[in-house]
Structures are given as C-alpha cells and as structure tokens.
Computed example of a mutant assay.
Amino acid sequence: MRPDRSLFIVEDDTTFAKTLKRSFEKRDYDVMVCHDREALLDALEKSVPAYAVVDLKLGAGGSGLECVKLLSARDASIRIVVLTGFASIATAVEAIKLGASHYLAKPANTDDIEAAFGRAEGDISVPLSSRPTSIKNLEWERIHETLVETGFNISETARRLGLHRRTLARKLEKRVVR
C-alpha cells in the first residue's frame, strides 16, 4: 500500500505556488494549492493532508499562523512546514507552538522542505552562535512580533511601538515582510 503523500500548499504567490506544486508532483505527492485561509477551510472539508507547506504572510493581511492552527486542530499528525521571506524568533516560536513541525526561511527548495517533513526530532548538533544579536536585529524582531500581534496593521503597530507611521513604513521598506 502506498503511504499517504497528500500535500496542501498554502501560498498567496501564484507563481511560487505553481512551481512548488509541480516540483512536489514530480516526487509523487498529491498536491492541493490554497491561496488563503478560506480556500484552506474549503479544502479541509473535502480531505485532510498528511503534509502542508504554509507561507507565513498571506495576501490581504492574512497570517499563515492561522492556517497552521486550523491544520493542526484538524489533525495533529499533519507535518506542517512554515515558509517565510522574513524569519524571526517570535514567529518561529509561535508557529511551532501552534503545531508546525518546522520553520524555514525563503528561499527554500523542495529538497529543504521534504527534509523538514522528515525531521520529527530537534537537532542538538545545531551550532550555537557566539555572536550576540545586534540591536538592528532585535529591533526588527520586535517590529515583526508587533506586526503579527496586530494582524499586520501598520498604523496600530506604529502606535504600539511609539513610532510615527512614516518612520515605521521606511523601516519596513528596507526589509520586506513576506
């Protein structure tokens, strides 16, 4: 009997989703692409996948963390990998708490994602950095954490951080959140 190779891809970038879908289909996965939370809800009514790849930042202010929570609530055994163009400690921790198996920064290829599906345990051989985190990185992590808390509402994020909205917008232009 063939093992379950069903895979949901939750990604709002249609070109990237199409490329990822084709790549996984070549590896004999049955792939369903959902571009937002509502499409994921509809797909979950029909079937529950064994694997899922979820983009952290979805279009129209949507959060992939909501999708991780939905998938995990439906079946805790789903191997969920979260992809993001901007990785932060805060979102990585939340993704894992909500049920993700792994968290990868873009660009990640099919090999990276499939390897992440296979890793159920933590890796104690990961090198520890002896270099302290820079103030810029700490600031960026705090900004991103607050963006997630506010549902990516820039005005509310600026208010909570005590920044002028234009100042925050300039900071965000320097590092695109995906």
Rank of each mutant, 00 (worst) to 15 (best):
W140T: 05
L161K: 04
E149L: 10
P132L: 01
I143W: 10
P127I: 13
A116R: 03
L163I: 01
W140G: 00
V148I: 15
R160N: 06
K136Y: 09
R142A: 15
H144C: 14
R165E: 15
R166Q: 09
R119E: 05
T167F: 04
T150L: 03
I135H: 10
R166G: 00
E145R: 15
E139K: 09
R166C: 00
A116V: 03
E156D: 11
D123V: 06
T150C: 13
L147R: 11
G151Q: 09
L163C: 02
A116Q: 09
I143Q: 06
E145V: 06
R131A: 14
E121S: 14
R142H: 12
T167S: 14
T157R: 09
F117G: 06
P127A: 15
T167W: 03
T133L: 14
S134F: 01
I143V: 15
S129Y: 01
E141A: 11
L138N: 05
E121T: 12
G162M: 04
R165L: 02
R131F: 04
E139W: 07
R131P: 02
I135D: 10
F117Y: 07
T133E: 15
R166N: 13
S130N: 05
S129R: 09
G118L: 12
E145H: 14
E139M: 10
R159G: 00
T146W: 01
A158Y: 01
F117L: 10
I124T: 06
S125F: 00
S125A: 11
G151D: 07
A158E: 03
T133S: 11
T146G: 06
S129L: 10
R166M: 07
V148M: 11
I154R: 14
T150V: 04
T133R: 10
P127N: 12
T157V: 05
S134Q: 07
T146M: 15
S125H: 02
G118C: 08
E149G: 00
A120E: 13
G118D: 12
W140Y: 10
K136Q: 13
S130Q: 03
R119F: 01
T167Q: 13
G162E: 08
R131K: 09
I135E: 14
A158D: 06
L161I: 04
V148Y: 07
R165Y: 00
T150A: 04
E139S: 07
H164D: 14
E156M: 12
